[in-house]
Design a binder for these strands. Structure first.
Lengths: 135, 135
DNA sequence: CTCCGTGCAAACGATTTGCACTATG
DNA sequence: CATAGTGCAAATCGTTTGCACGGAG
């Protein structure tokens, strides 16, 4: 399994890193199309899957309908906005949880965990305040 | 918005509670059909959405795949099997996390969090062992 | 030159919706 | 008896796949 570094693969990777966001496949597709108008959405999907499999990007299967992909592969958690569905990095320590309590769960072989904080982002709070003033 | 307690709604609720599992809409549909063969899958979807909105059941949006619905509305976390995709309750304490660190995140208004432990369930571990013996 | 990767369109699985009909409150 | 809820089919959304062609190694 040799990973060919194609043009599309490079651009996808570059645009995701550049964004510093947690983009969905189609959000990324829109960005990539500007540099490479004939690229197909299927290619974006395929490559996001391959790149995350290779550990070059992260895959986020958290709340919301669409998967999101992460430019940052170091271990960290996320915060999810229930209004705009965007995801942000959570820069708190992962403490306590690796521990014993988790390992002993019901005979499971534990491979990791996902912590997702849920809330409303500053931008959406503002937007809501405006709306309420109008009434 | 008056919630009518229809026959289908009652049965859906009853079957989910009875199952003591985290079922997907179509798994629940199969069970409910036994009592009410003419019920439509759309009705199951609609009611699961309504019932979880009303706080009568929980909605689990884990891992980007099918939603699962929870008979148990008390606050608790889950453990997810990466092989069979089933979900189980995690009965460890929710400690530490409600705390200050989480609240202060980047101006977000935090409403909760989701902790999802990831691993392989006992049943799937066994199944894998068997497979490897065969080789 | 050999395959892996691509673009395209069609297929897919989960969920939602429009509509005419039914039945709850 | 008003109108929320239902069943059905079609529509939609995100994602995947089959296939013939193109380009990286």
């Amino acid at each position: 399994m040799h990973l060919r570094m194609t043009n599309q693969r490079e651009i996808i990777l570059r645009e995701l890193k550049k964004s510093r966001q947690h983009l969905t496949a189609d959000e990324l597709y829109d960005r990539v199309k500007k540099d490479m108008p004939r690229i197909s959405l299927a290619t974006v999907y395929r490559n996001l899957e391959i790149l995350s499999g290779a550990g070059l990007i992260g895959k986020l299967e958290i709340s919301g309908r669409q998967k999101r992909f992460d430019y940052d592969v170091t271990e960290h958690d996320h915060i999810y906005c229930t209004v705009c569905h965007k995801v942000n990095n959570l820069d708190i320590e992962r403490q306590g949880l690796h521990a014993k309590e988790v390992k002993a769960v019901k005979g499971y072989r534990v491979t990791g965990y996902r912590l997702e904080v849920i809330g409303v982002c500053p931008a959406c709070q503002k937007r809501k305040e405006k709306k309420e003033k109008k009434k």
